[in-house]
Amino acid sequence: MTIARIWRIAAREALAERGHPDGFVAAITFVATLILVESLAVGPLAAGQPPVAAALFWIAMAFAAILATTRSFDRELEDDAIDAILALPGGRDALYGGKVVALTALLALVALVGGLLSGVLLSLAIALPGHLALVLVAGVLGLPPVIVLFVTLALRLRARGALVPILALPVLVPQLVAATNGTAAAIVGDATGALGWTGLLIAFALVYSVLGLTIVPTALE
């Protein structure tokens, strides 16, 4: 049963992360550093504007997701575990699905900490916290299906570190635009806007999850 295997891979990933939380620590440090540096670069007043704060946050999240996913696959490669997983029946689907589930959980934690940090550092007055939580969940759901897909495509290639952002960021443009606008709408109190962008983010997450589960197993050798 593929779903059971997906959960097994995700649980294995969570266990590995609990033992050595280098992916989570790297991602959260990266998000915090990037928010701090970007806010300093544009100036705290400009960075505190809802659309700017939202954009800075989601750009940091996209890069953190790439970092965490690359780290997760590096761990498989270092342990030679990936070949064993791929050799199992249904192992390719399970690897993609399991990584997406595990990365989503990790990014949810990173978004929570990063979001709180942004709110405190930039003194953001959030008009609709419930809507903001919805946008954050939908935005987090939209990143892993695309990023795991591209990390898988670039697996075992030289210059992978440079290649994954080059491939993933243009494809992530709609998700970044939707997440930024949705977050800004929730901060300023535009409920309709926040819900509209949330719906779009969920649609993108669904499309890329189905696409990933359909074609990524073909790309895995």
Partner: peptide
């Protein structure tokens, strides 16, 4: 996106692997 597609192709020397990865990307 398509500059990235060409970059992906140029980073692999294995004929079949390169073609498979590029085909997946070409569909996405």
């Amino acid at each position: 996106m398509y500059v990235g597609y060409l970059l992906l192709r140029n980073l692999s020397n294995d004929l079949e692997r390169r073609a498979t990865r590029a085909a997946v990307l070409g569909i996405v």
